[in-house]
Design a protein around this nucleic acid. Sequence first.
RNA 1: GGUCCCAUCGUCUAUCGGUUAGGACACAUGGUUUUCAUCCAUGAAAGAGGGGUUCGAUUCCCCUUGGGACCGCCA
Length: 462
Amino acid sequence: MSFICRFAPSPTGPLHIGGVRTALFNWLLAKKNKGKFFLRIEDTDKERSKDEFKDQIITSLDWLGINHDGNEYIQSKNVKNHIAVADELLKKGFAYKCYCSEEEINEQKEKCKKQGIPYIYNRKWRDAKDLEIPKNLDPVVRFKSKISGNTIIKDLVQGERNISNSTIEDFIILRKDKSPTYQLSATVDDNEMGISHVIRGDDHMINSFKQKQIYDALGWKVPEFAHIPLIHSEQGKKLSKRDNASTIEDYIKMGIIPDALRNYLLRLGWSYKDKEIFTKQESIDLFDLKGVGKSPSRLDISRIFSINETYIKTIEKKELFNYLKLYVNKYKNKLDDSKELIIFNSLDFLKNKAKTLEDIWNNAQYIITNKIQIGHEDKKLIDENSKKIINEFIIEFEKLSKPSKENLEPIIKTLISNHKTNFKGVGQPLRIKLVGSRFGPGIYDIILSLKKDEVIRRLKDL
RNA sequence: GGUCCCAUCGUCUAUCGGUUAGGACACAUGGUUUUCAUCCAUGAAAGAGGGGUUCGAUUCCCCUUGGGACCGCCA
């Protein structure tokens, strides 16, 4: 069996994390089964579709390493075919022209609302032999949805889903301006692209029932469906663009690395035993629709940070550095080459208490800045005795031709015993002078990461 | 309101009728450490409620409750 999957977002807003997970699951399934994964931009809403969103979608998926086969399909380029199919449905009697004005429809809706009954289009023009066709009114084309019976979809995630056909109205497939609607375009394109598995959010469930009828009417092969549960915001509602930190861009800005987000999304609504960390290849090998749960899952930012931390700590230094560089160049001030080298060499300890790339950047501030700012609290910690210690350290430090941990250690130890103090008594004032805070990397790491004369310069600046 | 769906620690989840209900994040405590962190150890923390079915239900069925999605000439 071939697996042709697709992700079909509309470019009417920035791609959010729910959409990304849908794309990921489609991609995973295609990869696992050596099938294809296509990207289709559903831009038939001319009013709201924007090129910038299309670009954002493509960039986001690209950033995550979810790459599609072939060029992206642009749905609007295929409207001629969509309309042709509508005509065919019309000709075969599966669709009809409806001359109800929008006012008329709205009136009906109002009426239903007042009576407290659910609105469903009254199918006035479905078999309208006797009705007089109004002039000056462009009709819409509606699909003749089944009136009786039930439709069953064997959903790969949700199991058997059954709905009474009477609850599905005669939905519009062609607007009054003759443009196709989503139900038509998506079905025609999925068919044309040979999509075998339609994996999308659970909010599309009802659409699958509608679209199945179109497939059946045309005698097309109905694809497999899988409706994956939605991702909820921390408030427990469907994710919307208003929720902060829901677009990929937001996560990139926080300094999340692609693999970490991919891993997080993978484990949101899907699991494999007790395994938490999956390489890309592992996720392809192990992914399975059977492992997808049925209930919606809530976004948990602390989990994203935690997984990101794991990745920061375990990926190769060079890889991490590249991510950091990309991040800093985009969101922070570009680094000059000499600082870049220091940061690269110091990455092993700079990444230590970092959950994000931004944390690493913050940890590296003492390297980046040329002027150390010492906070009030920290300033207070440098008393007269500390100043003495610092001065004595400088004298010994200046003698070193090439500072190393080996030749630094005796100096510190001597200072500790001469001043009857502990490591903290010596390390703390030095750290404050060198990085501007009593918190920071290990004191040897700090000293060795900076150039010798820079260390002296900072320490002398009393 | 109508239709459909969901329900295990705060969160993500494991369990495919028999478990001291497991793991991870977060949280708390203790330990290592050179500060902050890391790391290690420990702890607290869950089957929404009520009925069935069964020798036995978290697991299967029903009801209640709670939550969600859909109800556009948007996609």
